[in-house]
Every structure is written in C-alpha cells, then in structure tokens.
Write a protein that binds this DNA or RNA. Sequence first.
DNA 1: CAGTGAATGTGATTTTTTTAACATTTCTGC
DNA 2: GCAGAAATGTTAAAAAAATCACATTCACTG
Lengths: 273, 273
Amino acid sequence: MCLRYKWTGWSELGGENGLMNRRGVERQERLLQALVSGGSLHLADAAKLCGVSEMTLRRDVSSRDSLLSLMGGYLVRRDDPHYMPTYDLSAQQMRGAEIKASLCRHALSCIDDGDTLFIDCGTTLLPLASELGRRQGLTVVTYALNVANAVSALDDVRLILLGGRYRRVSQSFEGDDMAAQIRALGINRAFISAAGVHPQRGLSCFHFHEVAPKQAVIETAAQRILVFDDSKWDCLRPAFFGALSDVDIIVTHDRAASALADIPDLIPRLITM
Amino acid sequence: MCLRYKWTGWSELGGENGLMNRRGVERQERLLQALVSGGSLHLADAAKLCGVSEMTLRRDVSSRDSLLSLMGGYLVRRDDPHYMPTYDLSAQQMRGAEIKASLCRHALSCIDDGDTLFIDCGTTLLPLASELGRRQGLTVVTYALNVANAVSALDDVRLILLGGRYRRVSQSFEGDDMAAQIRALGINRAFISAAGVHPQRGLSCFHFHEVAPKQAVIETAAQRILVFDDSKWDCLRPAFFGALSDVDIIVTHDRAASALADIPDLIPRLITM
DNA sequence: CAGTGAATGTGATTTTTTTAACATTTCTGC
DNA sequence: GCAGAAATGTTAAAAAAATCACATTCACTG
C-alpha cells in the first residue's frame, strides 16, 4: 500500500546535484587511476573490477563532483576543459573549430621539414600543433600548456616548453627570463596569435604577461606568421605587442582578408582561403 | 518480380571490409578537422553538419579505412588515446593503482596550508597532485608534464613548471639551469619518487636527466619526503641520485616498510600503512 | 539489538543506439 | 535519356544503455 506520503525518490538526492559518498570516491579513485594514461573502460568490466553493480557506478558517475563520465556504456575521464576545448561539439561550435582548423591547414603549408617553430598560446593554433606529425624533424618551442600537451603526443616532434608561473586565463606560463630564453633559441618560423588585430593600431592581446615572449619572438624569429580568424579583426585588446608590419605572413580569411587586401603597400604577405 | 539471382546485400560490400567512397572521404576529412584537438561529436549533429543522414555517416565510419570511430552515439577520432578501449585492466594493475593512491593519501597528511611543494615526476605522485585541492594556498613546483596537468586543473593551487626539452620517457622536462632555478625557489616540502630503492645503495632512477633536479631539491628543500611502492624496493636503476639518509620521511608499506623498520638507527622517519 | 538512514542491488520500463532490409536518389558511360 | 551501379535514405526490428521504483543490505546510534 503506497502510504509513503513524502517520498521524493533517490533522483533528487543522488543525482546530478548530490555529492559522492566515501566509498564512491574510493571507487572513482581506482578507476581514475586505471585510466590515467587515457582509454576507456566498459561499464560491465569496471563494475566487476570494483565488485559492485553497474547501477552503483552509474550513480557514482552522475554525481556532480565526479571526474569520470559515461559515454555509450564506456567510462572515460571527464574532459578537462583546459586542453579539450571542444568536448561536446554542437553544430555552432563546430563552425568556429572548422574555421580555425582550416586556417591551420594553410599555416601548415608554410612549414618545412626540420624547422624550429614557435607556437603561440590560445586556441587558434591548437589544430596546427596536433597536425605537425605530418612533417619530419620538427622542433616546437612554446610557452602554452595546451600547445605543449598537443605536441607531447607526437612522437617525432621535439618539444621545448618555456616554463614559469602558470596562468590559468591563457593556459600559458609567465617567467622572468622568458625573453632571454627565446633569444637564445634559433627559431625558424614563428606562429603568432592575437586577440585583437586592428588595421592601424596593429596587434594586441588580453594578458600583459604574453607581451614579453611575443615581442622576443617577433624580434628574433627568421619568419613571423600571424594567424587569426575574423572574430579578432578590427579589435583592440588591453596589451599591444606589435604592428602589422612586424610580421612577414598573415593567414586569415573573409572580412579581415578583404580589408587587408585593400591596404596599399601592405608589408606582410597575405595568405587567405 | 524477385529475379535477382545473386544478390549478396550491402552488408558484405559496404561493411567493415569495404573502402569509403570519394564523398565519404570528404565528409570524414571535415569531421576529422572538427575533432583535431580531441573531443567528441554527437552523430545527429555530425549528420546535420554534413547534410546527410545518420545512416550514411555510420556507413562511412564502419568502413575499414575510417579514421573515426563511433562510441555510444558519439564520433571520436579512432587514434584518440582518450577513448581507446582499455581491454586488459587486470586486477594486477588495479591493485598497483590502488596502492599508489593510498600512499598518496598518507603523503597528503604531511602537507599544511600555504606550503610550497615540489612534486617529482613519474606516476607514483600523480594521485597526490590531483588531491591538493583540499589544502589552501599551496604552490606546486614540478618539472613533470603529467603533474603540471593535474595541478593546472586545481583553481586554488599556484603552479610553477620548470621547463626545457621534453622527455617522453619520463613525461618531464630537462633543462640546463633547472638546478639553479630550484635553488632560487623556497621549497618547503619536497615529494620525491624513485624507480629503485635499495637498503644499502639508496635511491636511483631510470633517466639521467632526472638526477640534477632531484639532487637540487634534496639539497635545498626544508623537508624531503620519499614515496615509493613495493615494486621499487631492493631495486637498482641506472642513475643514482641520493642515499636513504638524504630524506626526512619515507612513505611506503608492506615488504619495504618492514625491511626498513628493521634497520637500526634509520635516519628518515617512517610512515607506513 | 531494534531502528534509522545511507548505500547498494534487482528487475521492469523507457530511451537510445545499432543493425538489417529494402526503397529511393544520384552518378556514369554510352 | 537510359541502364546499371553506386550512394544515400527510410523504416522496422533487435540490442544495448539509461532510468526508474522499490527491495535489500549495511553501518551506525541510542
């Protein structure tokens, strides 16, 4: 006889709002460890390993503080938004990602085997970093954690990370002597990003700690390649780091490309799509 | 009139054995680009994006030469280590992970709010790094990429990464002046890992480039905490970096713990489980 | 040690994904 | 334009996963 007058159900308690219990945390710890080096684990196997039912694991995973997630019956580590900017790509986001990817395809064509590249921070150049496996004998210099992670996955590419204090906002490092370190390296080709590109005022970014490395690279690299998408065109950001004429090549498209094409005697060479 | 005398069905032709057609390859190219930096895409979104039915994409994906794969309704890159199925997760491995996690729980109890910690490379201390969110005002110094990634996810922890040339084998960086940088920092508590711990010969690791930072830390840190599991006990590895008496605290258990407990006048304090 | 609430298990139900079979459209060479 | 093949769409059935409702177990407290 259904006399339970105030039953609210487990959903409310244990669902997406709740926190995991002690043993739940322990289980998660185990599974997380099992997946440290990536990979996925079928729910049934995981349940057998932990000695609990699938349902229990489902409940663990659905708690708000879980670091695991379940997709199609497989447990995977919940994506760190840090270096997984596009987790669950909707059609909208895809557009932006596709644009960046196509910019990077063009940028990739500038690269020769054996180059020593600099890759700037931000998300624009991330697809470039992931595609470098197609060239031989490359060395990549960067001060961005997300770029370093992408490059670290490529077996044939040497990686040099300029360390220092980590800045979450830009996912990059800030160091006193970064400029000096950059000057000590022989950078062949530098891929530079910008949060703002203005026809008169030139290149700017959000964070002041990015200025020193950017300028050091502009100063020392043999070839400087600016890559930016339309959303940055005609924008001013707090920290200026250079002029349009400080770069040798510009990779962009659409609005920015046609505006740039109209500038007479533009110094950088223009690559558009 | 069903006179088709030799109809074998599509399954045989288009299934796992077949190759993709021209447009299929184009579609895949597009989707692959969208997923360059990892992540996943729901089949329905992908279908909308490509302007075809879900079924068509399913057929693309199931062709032998596809670089995409489908898990639980989501498209992912087939080579993405994040989604690689982990087939053989033996109770053995699981046990190792569990041991490391429990060692790290003990290590965590050594930490006070406001500490400046050093965390060594390897997998042993990885669970420690992920748990640091429980303390306030911490600063973490490391030269390991995996540790840096774990710490970068924690909002309240300052991270200082000692950069340089990346070494895949140890997921850490090698730099000329790393020792100098470490000496310039005020490290409060250093968590040190070792690939080999020998009762007489002391502490060793696999890679020579780890020796300089480890020794610099041992030399300068206020408190040195060695963490290792049983599999390292009584082992000699190529590169020696210190003696047992160079550390202040040892966190371990089982075989190693009882052997150490038998050593008279052992200098480091022992924490076991 | 009964009683309570949290944690977990079980099986039915609903939803989603996968597969299969066949219809329809598009392409290609003549 | 037409035949035939290739590519894609549509629908139904099967399989798997996710959710739900409630039963059971466990760990405590008084």
